[in-house]
Write a protein that binds this DNA or RNA. Structure first.
Lengths: 123, 123, 123, 123
DNA sequence: GTGGTCTAGACCACG
DNA sequence: GTGGTCTAGACCACT
């Protein structure tokens, strides 16, 4: 279910964090679901267990999962994830648009891109 | 003219690359303009000459500047920079929008964000 | 396996790039093989780690190796290396032949040189 | 008549040497012809006079021109130039072919390239 | 352990 | 003066 890309510039643990958040946002991992154990995931992805542990640790720190020693890690609070993610994305969107303006791309052109994407989606 | 932020997570040489590209996009540095010498810029920014050189080297490799040993480095190909940057940004825009959809943000909401930014800009 | 020549006019990092490409072309280094670590190779060749790293960096940039921070550098894309090298060589061949023509060397004479080399090889 | 390319990786003085040798081989500059003065050529090419002087110095050292102080530089001995150049080129040809073999390019393929070039020339 | 970045400072080739 | 290469050695992030 989770895939990492060794060619990606981002470190593996950050890729993991993003992937797991994504699974929660898309509801593929629901509230209370148990995540794979550190060892299993490490074996499956051929990655150092420390790397998995670091991803889980940061996810727990951010409140997205809960780790119960001896039992495993459990997903928590989809709503919060979505809300936080949305905030991040809106910020990113604003940044991208500002940079597009600098490249002499008009609002109309931006709108057009959004519209085209929307049409493609609804087909 | 060029500024770097030592607190920034990005390495200095990447900041430099971005800054210089930006100067070319905004036409503050025009085609054929001579960039500061490696040593001068290093002194001015209080950075090691090697770091400047790496930025210049990568910019040349990407075709954005042209460096002549013994003479200096010269800006080239503004159009290409703008074009490449725009392509990057559109790709980013599409990625952000797709992620917003996943977070159940509608096209209308996205449009509204763009509109609000546009209004703020024109004030 | 890799050797450099300090007396060579070419910079060390370029020699390294050529050597490694050659190892890939001759299939002594196969797809997915791990290259020596930056530090190991630096020790072995009695060269500064920075120099090795520069060679690796440029090889990665050109798509010939893939480096994963914390894991190492891995060969990739032998076919591409051979293809690129062949293209380079054919271009060089054409250039040399054109220059030979200018020096009033006939096609027949060129053919003869090739034939003689071929005979020598097959002995 | 002489042109240099600032984007070329080779230093300007080497480009000059090549260009002048080429003019002698193609007989555009004949035995005894006077070459432009250092100053004139420097002005014409927008290049530092030292650079021209270095090229002339090395050409004289190799026996391709003769410099008479106060009078100028004069071309000498086309035959020798052609002969030397031919020797260089044959050596290069052999090197290229050997490398092509390594890239699994057969003699037949090489012959074909030569033939095709020959046909193109005679059209 | 791995690679990635950076500094300090040297030497060379080129103009 | 310019850029190009290299060494020595530091610190950091990642596995």
């Amino acid at each position: 279910m989770i895939q990492i890309d060794f060619a990606d510039a981002r470190p593996i643990y950050k890729q993991l964090i993003e992937e797991i958040k994504m699974l929660m946002v898309t509801n593929e991992v629901k509230n209370g679901d148990r995540l794979p154990s550190v060892r299993d995931l490490a074996n499956q992805l051929e990655v150092n267990p420390n790397t998995i542990q670091r991803a889980y640790r940061e996810l727990e720190h951010a409140g997205f999962i809960q780790t119960v020693p001896g039992k495993g890690s459990f997903a928590s609070g989809r709503k919060e994830v979505v809300k936080a993610r949305k905030k991040e994305l809106v910020k990113e969107l604003e940044k991208v648009i500002e940079h597009l303006w600098i490249c002499e791309v008009s609002d109309e052109e931006i709108m057009e891109i959004v519209n085209k994407m929307s049409e493609r989606k609804h087909k």
